[in-house]
Structure formats: structure tokens, C-alpha cells
Design a protein around this nucleic acid. Structure first.
Lengths: 138, 138
DNA sequence: GTCCATGCAAATAGTTTGCACCCGG
DNA sequence: CCGGGTGCAAACTATTTGCATGGAC
């Protein structure tokens, strides 16, 4: 089940555990992000955070997202040429992408896997595999 | 084997076959693009086209790439948050992405496939599957 | 008081738009 | 001539940088 609007101290603890100083802006951002499992672009997050009154600047949204990614709290998903999504579900998994609406959905199946992967170019190691299934309305 | 620097009339024919009026700018762009199988960003293509003397504007590069994509002559590949790549090899296939250098390589294997794909959300149809294997130096 | 991390205004980079111009009929 | 298609300057949008500020020791 999803966590609903986690309280400040809970989020603060999460940030501290990942070596991030829990400032006011970061708490507001993290609260919005981790209120549920979701995929948000920087712009969507900005709107969400400032919906009541302006609290955080655009630049801080970007910098905080980059920080959270570096610390492993969110994962970048690059599918849409227009914007990067940040996924609050950081365990490796794959995605459905609705090309009409631009919506991104997790593929829950753990059965999903790649078969027949050729050997890598010499001297290279595999860092990860991303599978995106593009879908649209019938 | 790759085609080497196709001549103007050959490229012009290719464009005409795809309902594109072969203007000077488009010929210069298409010649550079289709000289070999490759992955180029708009910026890389701009540099390539204008390396001797400035012949085509940035906007025209973008507009022409969009046109070629619409007409099925190139394929967009979205992997790097910083730029869209255009792939001159339009048959469906997958990619290695070198996260250090930002280089994109085709996966030649036809064995490669996805297993265990769950059923799609109701009312949706599958448009395609993209697999990206992220790799880096050991 | 010093230092370093932080937050944000301003700068930058990638892409699209709107319109002047040109070419074919 | 006239009209539609083209090419590009300028506008726009997403993201990063550089620096003034403020809190911790």
C-alpha cells in the first residue's frame, strides 16, 4: 500500500539517512514526491509544491531532484523527448508509456525479462537494461 | 555494407519517393545523414553540414529532421536526457548506450527479445518496444 | 568570524513558431 | 501575378550555473 502524505519528521529522517540536510525547501519537495508512488516531471513537481502559495523556485526543484537522484532516492526515466521523469520507485523495473497522453506506468510483472542479449563490446560492463513498451488507444 | 557519400541525384530520388521536395538545404542535410548508418543529434548534424562553410541554419536542421521522421526516413531514439538522436536505420532494433561517452550503438542480434510481457491496460494496443542496454567501461 | 552548503536569478542549450520570401503554375 | 511551401530569426521551454546569503562550528 502507499504511504499517504508522510509527516515532516518522517521525511526528514529519510533525507538524513541518505546524507541530505533536511532544509525547509527539501522537506516540502520530498513530502510532495514521496506522498505516493508516482512519476513526475520537474514542472509537475513545481506546480504541486507551489499550489497553495509559492514556496520553492524552479532552480531548487531541479537541483533537489538531481541531488535526490545522486543519493538514490529517485530514479530518472527518459522516454519523452520533452521532459525527464522522476520515479519514486527505485527498484529496477520497466515501463509502459502511453504515447497519446504522455503518461508513464510501471510494469508490475517480475516475469518480464530480456532474452538473447549479445555479448557486450570488449572492455564494457552492463549497467542496466531499460525496457519501454509504447502503447496507445485502440 | 554502407553507402558512401551518395550523390545528389540519388538522394534527391530518395526524398521524392517519400514525398519530400528536394531543396538545396534538404539535399545537403540528407547527403550528410545517409552517407552511412549512424546516430546523430541535431547539433552533431548541424556541425557536419556546415563544416566547410555555413549552409544551413539550426532551425532548418530541426525542421528537416522532424520532416524526415514523419516520412519514415529516420527514427527518433530517446535515451539521453540532453538530446534526441536520429537513427538512419529505421527497421526496429535495439541499442547499447555508453553512459560515459554518450555514444549509441545498434544491437545487431535478431535473437534479442522480451519475454513475460504482461497484458496491456484495457483498451490499449502495443505500438512498439524499446530496449536500451546501458553499458560503461569496466 | 570563517567556511561551506544552499537557494535562486540569470544564463545557457535544445527545440519550435511565425512570418517574409521564393518558386511553380 | 497568386498561393503554398520553405528557411530562418526570434521566441520559447527545459535545465544548469554562479554567486549572494545564512547557518554551523
Amino acid at each position: 500500500m502507499e504511504t499517504q502524505t508522510p509527516d515532516r519528521s518522517h521525511v526528514a529522517e529519510l533525507l538524513r539517512q541518505h546524507d541530505i540536510i533536511p532544509t525547509h525547501q527539501r522537506l516540502v519537495i520530498a513530502k510532495a514526491l514521496f506522498s505516493r508512488r508516482q512519476h513526475l516531471s520537474a514542472d509537475q513537481l513545481l506546480a504541486l509544491v507551489n499550489q497553495e502559495h509559492s514556496e520553492v523556485s524552479k532552480a531548487t526543484i531541479y537541483n533537489t531532484l538531481n541531488l535526490l537522484e545522486k543519493k538514490g532516492l529517485v530514479r530518472e526515466v527518459i522516454i519523452d523527448p520533452d521532459r525527464v521523469f522522476y520515479d519514486t520507485y527505485t527498484i529496477p523495473h520497466h515501463h509502459f508509456f502511453d504515447v497519446d497522453s504522455g503518461m508513464l506506468m510501471d510494469i508490475e510483472s517480475e516475469e518480464l525479462r530480456v532474452e538473447g542479449l549479445p555479448k557486450l563490446p570488449p572492455g564494457m560492463i552492463q549497467e542496466g537494461v531499460d525496457i519501454v513498451v509504447r502503447i496507445r488507444h485502440q
